[in-house]
Design a binder for these strands. Structure first.
Length: 112
DNA sequence: GGGGTGACCCAGT
DNA sequence: TACTGGGCCACCC
C-alpha cells in the first residue's frame, strides 16, 4: 500500500486516544508503537501527524522525551495537563513527571 | 525529482 | 544541568 500515511495517522491517533486521563506519554513511545503496527514513522513523523490530524485527540497528553510539552503548544498543553491532574514539576518550564504519569501503549494492551 | 521544513530524539560538550 | 549539532522520517513547494 503506497497510499498516504492515512493508516499511520489512524494508528497514532488511536494510541493517543488510549492515553488515560491524568497520564501522559512521549512522541518516541507513540512512534515506537506506531512503527510496530505500520513499520514506518519516527518521533519526528508523529509530531508532524499530530500537528495536522491531532485536533481530534488529547494531544496535550503527548509530550517530548524530556517531559516538556511541545514548544508550539506548550502553554495550551500545560493548562490542559494541569486540568487533567497530571503531576508537573514546579520549575518555570513545567515538565510532566513521566516517572509518575508516564504511560505506554504496551502497558494498557498486552504486547503479545 | 530535488530541496527545505517540522508539535522530535540522542550523544557530546 | 543546559545548550549544540547531527540524524531521523514524511510531507509540501
Amino acid at each position: 500500500m503506497r497510499e498516504v500515511a492515512e493508516d499511520y495517522v489512524e494508528v497514532v491517533l488511536d494510541l493517543v486516544q488510549q492515553i488515560p486521563p491524568g497520564r501522559a506519554t512521549t512522541y518516541g513511545v507513540i512512534a515506537e508503537a506506531a512503527k510496530e503496527s505500520t513499520g514506518r514513522g519516527s518521533a519526528r513523523t508523529v509530531g508532524t501527524v499530530m500537528a495536522r490530524y491531532g485536533g481530534g485527540v488529547p494531544w496535550w497528553r503527548v509530550v517530548t522525551a524530556s517531559g516538556a510539552a511541545a514548544d508550539r503548544v506548550a502553554g495550551r498543553a500545560i493548562e490542559l495537563l494541569r486540568a487533567e491532574g497530571v503531576p508537573l514539576t514546579s520549575h518555570d518550564p513545567p515538565r510532566v513527571d513521566l516517572a509518575e504519569a508516564g504511560w505506554e501503549p504496551w502497558e494498557d494492551e498486552p504486547q503479545m
